[in-house]
Design a protein around this nucleic acid. Structure first.
Length: 463
DNA sequence: TCTGGGGTCCTAGGACCC
DNA sequence: TCTGGGGTCCTAGGACCC
């Protein structure tokens, strides 16, 4: 923990609803509820006018309508939210190079590297006031709540204190006293389940949380939570403000208006979602090895099935084929209310690039344009999925391999034969290998999928 | 007309290797 | 020859956040 109040947390007030009120004057002063408008929708953001009627985030839309029937119900305009967010984050980055966005409407800012004397609380207050004024001016009317303290924990808690449209600075040295009387749920990371476990042993306030030893908390809540709460309850927190946080996973999911049992329909949904995930991976310059299928049954029971590929992919066909295979193995029971497709174990292209340069040096002159022109069959690279080498999938390599070695695996022969093909082999021709089903070994009649590797090294192929 | 969509982090068990 | 421990990877699920 620092000795100065130099961590700032900023939170835009009722963000989505406020953007709507800003852009539509007729909504100002009226309850506005943004969220899913379908029968299974939930509230994303409620304006303060709607909150006085008890409408809250994550509440079912049906309940929100019952509580506040005269509100304006909107489905949200994410482009407008992203744009407003970018204006705010842009201003924060002018204040300090160390800005850590937590979402579109929230960020930590490290004031220790800003142009302000953080030992002077009045100077910090002045800076905060000017930041809030500037944000309102630049966004044409949005307001922000701000907390400043000596740690992320206390800055975040401080931003709640004078919300909305307020600011609070926690003087260094007073953190533990400020925190003590609060409910345990004031600590970010303590949700309903943890609060209930603590309540059962008589702990409801942060002060109560200081009673048990670290070992006792670890026994009650596990290693990570136990240790962390032992420290956080005493306001001990030295987590740094981190400007660059790596993406760990990319996913898409969709709740159906009515439950679905038809596997063909689900297969089509997977196809669409795989394309969306692949497009987002590609635009972020990412690819991943683990494909996860998420299924939520009619009774809300939720399961995930995942499969890790031998190499990273951002190919819609690979992602879809993997997810569909996971669906094939799943029991649909009484129908699904949600299906989702995700990719994790992400790598960026730079790593793949390094991996392949030995045999496929990257020459910009040889790069294929990422359009509808099929990649030549000679464009195979180590690590590339066999059914992955369609155009536009982000794997643009200069030189191709002369020969491609694939190890085939089927259910009956898990460590199947290793075969080497000329890179121009029709079996491996991209147009032929768009899909798992399409990629058939003519010699055995077996449908395969595979990974191209350097000659002599292994690769995984599944039936 | 019960319970969104996008994430992160943690835990636990099994496989596998040394 | 019945008894190890540690590390890493993979899978599944759960809690939590906005």
């Amino acid at each position: 923990m620092r000795s100065t109040a130099s961590v700032m947390h900023l939170d835009l007030d009722a963000f989505f609803a406020s953007v709507e009120q800003r852009d539509k004057p007729s909504l100002r002063g009226r309850p506005v509820i943004v969220g899913g408008l379908g029968s299974r929708g939930v509230v994303s953001t409620a304006s303060y006018e709607a909150r006085t009627h008890g409408v809250r985030s994550a509440m079912r839309m049906a309940e929100a309508r019952a509580r506040c029937p005269h509100a304006a119900f909107l489905s949200g305009r994410f482009e407008a939210y992203r744009e407003a967010s970018a204006v705010v984050m842009g201003h924060l980055r002018e204040i300090s190079p160390l800005v850590e966005p937590l979402s579109l409407d929230e960020a930590f800012v490290d004031l220790a590297v800003a142009d302000v004397d953080v030992t002077d609380l009045d100077a910090v207050r002045d800076l905060v006031a000017s930041i809030r004024r500037e944000i309102t001016a630049r966004t044409h009317g949005l307001t922000a709540s701000v907390g400043v303290a000596s740690s992320k924990l206390m800055a975040k808690i401080a931003s709640e204190i004078d919300k909305p449209d307020g600011a609070h600075v926690v003087a260094p040295g007073t953190e533990a006293d400020v925190l003590g009387p609060m409910q345990v749920t004031a600590i970010p990371g303590v949700g309903p389940a943890t609060a209930e476990r603590l309540r059962r042993v008589g702990i409801t306030t942060v002060e109560d949380l200081r009673e048990p030893s670290e070992d006792e908390l670890v026994r009650l809540l596990g290693q990570a939570s136990g240790r962390s709460l032992h420290r956080l309850s005493r306001a001990q927190d030295d987590r740094a403000v981190e400007a660059e946080r790596e993406t760990k996973s990319v996913s898409v999911e969709d709740t159906f208006t009515t439950d679905v049992t038809d596997r063909h329909r689900l297969g089509a949904e997977i196809e669409t979602m795989a394309r969306a995930v692949a497009a987002r991976l590609a635009s972020a310059g990412l690819s991943g090895r683990t494909v996860t299928l998420k299924l939520r049954h009619h009774d809300f029971e939720t399961h995930t099935r995942s499969s890790t590929l031998p190499g990273p992919t951002d190919s819609p066909t690979t992602i879809a084929a993997t997810a569909r295979r996971l669906l094939d193995d799943a029991d649909l029971g009484g129908g699904l209310r949600l299906i989702g497709v995700g990719v994790s174990a992400l790598a960026d292209w730079v790593q793949d690039d390094l991996f392949t340069t030995e045999t496929a040096p990257l020459d910009p002159a040889d790069e294929q344009p990422r359009d509808d022109v099929p990649t030549p069959a000679t464009d195979w690279s180590p690590g590339m999925d066999v059914h992955h080498a369609t155009h536009g999938d982000g794997w643009v390599w200069g030189a191709g391999l002369e020969r491609v070695t694939v190890r085939f695996e089927t259910r009956t022969t898990p460590a199947g034969p290793v075969m080497t093909f000329p890179a121009s082999d029709p079996l491996l021709r991209p147009g032929h290998a768009r899909d798992a089903e399409d990629l058939t070994d003519d010699r055995t009649g077996t449908a395969v999928r595979g990974t191209v590797e350097q000659e002599g090294s292994g690769a995984t192929v599944e039936p």
